[in-house]
Write a protein that binds this DNA or RNA. Structure first.
Lengths: 239, 239
DNA sequence: CGCCAGTTTGACCAAGATCAACGCAAGTGG
DNA sequence: CCACTTGCGTTGATCTTGGTCAAACTGGCG
């Protein structure tokens, strides 16, 4: 049961103009976005630093500029669940209630934009297009969540790992060589498996020459079709 | 498959149940709601009828007036997954893409309101408050989905069944006597278990006098604290 | 070099799935 | 009215997947 979290992250105060991903990509609503940009603050966090804690106030929402973030929850008896990984361009921390149900942690070195919720609320009322943009972001998240529910509820361990690899392929670089910033424990807690099972299945895939594992954080997809076949059996990739 | 009852439903229909009235409950935006009402159509469906099919167009979204709806997906090899049960007041079919990823079916006799998406889109731009209302609805759904993910990924079978019973208690009548409109198979597919496991665990709860089962569709919560204790161990109820 | 965190592998175990039979109440048709 | 069917639900016996426990391996670093 080793699972420590190192010291805290640090700010780098200045408001920056870092553009990538979810909201910006599908825009065409530039004035609203520029205004949104103006109310954001740029922050940076060290590996394993806590971005916000379970139980804290949800006064802000965030957008990843670079690096990876995990949204997770630790149960009383040590079981952990990772609800989502967020990569550059992804939004997180958009919540309904006033209190965080999950915490957010930096998987590696992370830079994010932080937006005050109240300020966004006002802007959203003035810019219907921004409202729709935000709503679509949330709807996409909801659709992802449904895919993950299907995975956790009805897919076997190999199907889950295959789906995970394909998902990472789609969401990160669409290249044969996949670099995974997160640890095996993170992957296990994301897939609802144990670290040993994840290892064994990756090893099995390696044995079957479906993937290669030059080092633990780098996986090469040698035979993506094989992975897709495994995943297809379970109803298609989540996400 | 469905018959149209009358062109216009009425929102006041079933104010009441705790969880219900997603949109209505927190309103106070009457003009927008009345306008929304005007673009809705009231429909009714027979038990097990399909409200919309996987793969169909997502031109509409819906709100349950009475009865229960299941949002589900059938995999190629027969595995089935139920993403959500919707009871009176709940919205469903709000989606991002143009195509349905899940189907919706009537669990029992159901009456629903149907809203055209395009019409809603226009209204939403004119009524910022409605936009926020809709977004909050989706955010609540997202939060529920996260709870379910935790359950499917990290909770044991007894924890899931306990969580399910408590959830039904909260969402339907908050009375000792719980009537469950759905079948055991529906429950199993919702919890990511098999029908046999659900039966066995319900029987175990009955043996321990935590619940009584006067008939398959009626369960009495004799000892809600015991259920809560079981559920707590797994990180608290989903929803 | 030895230590430490993370990863991998093996042996064994148990939760839950699968397979099979039976119960039971609501139709249905003779 | 009574056999017969049909669709759930329940229970038992057995099997499999993935979890648990334990030990070995690897690469980085003081």
């Amino acid at each position: 049961m080793y699972r420590q979290i190192s010291n805290n992250g640090h700010w780098s105060g200045q408001a920056g103009a870092a553009y990538s991903g979810a909201i910006v990509a599908q825009s065409g609503h530039l004035d609203a976005l520029v205004a949104l940009e103006r109310i954001g603050t740029r922050l940076s966090f060290a590996r394993n630093a806590e971005i916000y804690a379970e139980g804290g106030d949800s006064d802000y929402w965030y957008k990843v500029v670079s690096g990876s973030v995990r949204i997770c929850k630790l149960l009383a008896d040590g079981r952990r669940h990772i609800a989502e990984f967020c990569f550059s361009g992804d939004c997180f921390g958009l919540e309904n209630g006033s209190e965080r149900i999950y915490s957010a942690e930096a998987v590696d070195e992370v830079i994010i934009m932080r937006y005050r919720r109240s300020a966004t609320e006002q802007m959203v009322d003035q810019h219907p297009s921004l409202a729709r943009l935000l709503r679509d972001t949330v709807l996409r998240e909801l659709s992802n969540a449904h895919g993950r529910m299907l995975m956790l509820g009805r897919m076997t361990a190999p199907e889950r790992v295959a789906a995970f690899l394909l998902q990472m392929y789609e969401r990160r670089a669409r290249t044969k060589v996949l670099d995974l910033p997160m640890s095996r424990i993170d992957i296990a807690d994301y897939l609802g498996l144990t670290i040993e099972t994840v290892c064994r299945i990756l090893s099995a895939f390696k044995r079957e020459e479906v993937i290669a594992i030059p080092n633990p954080h780098r996986i090469e997809l040698l035979d993506r079709c094989a992975l897709e076949a495994i995943n297809e059996a379970g109803g298609g990739a989540a996400i």
